[in-house]
């Protein structure tokens, strides 16, 4: 079970959160110029990282805020938490 540190509420059980997937590239600003292949890539292709992964989580059972964390998908170690507004990195370890 993951122990996730919400940047607003502190450490909570994974079951309080909703996983929002990988932090994706920005939505293309010129959709009309994209080919079907490029759209499909934006919509569906995944980096599916084995290792350090930046992902979005929603504290659905708490403060109901979104934030990003950096997690190693192999060891499940969470190494960073990001505040979406400030985009400031708060290191867990120091």
């Amino acid at each position: 079970m993951l122990l996730i540190k919400c940047i607003f509420c502190g450490e909570r059980d994974e079951t309080e959160f909703h996983y929002g997937g990988e932090l994706r590239d920005k939505r293309p600003l010129n959709p009309n110029d994209l080919s079907d292949k490029e759209w499909a890539e934006f919509l569906y292709s995944k980096r599916n990282v084995n290792g350090i992964h930046i992902e979005q989580w929603f504290h659905s059972g708490g403060c109901r805020q979104w934030f990003n964390i950096e997690r190693n998908t192999f060891t499940n170690e969470i190494t960073n938490t990001f505040n979406l507004k400030k985009q400031k990195i708060t290191r867990e370890k120091d």
Partner: peptide, 13 residues
């Protein structure tokens, strides 16, 4: 388990 994971371990919940 809802998150991506290569550990071949999941959560107890």
């Amino acid at each position: 388990d809802k998150y991506i994971g290569y550990s071949q371990r999941g959560s107890f919940s």
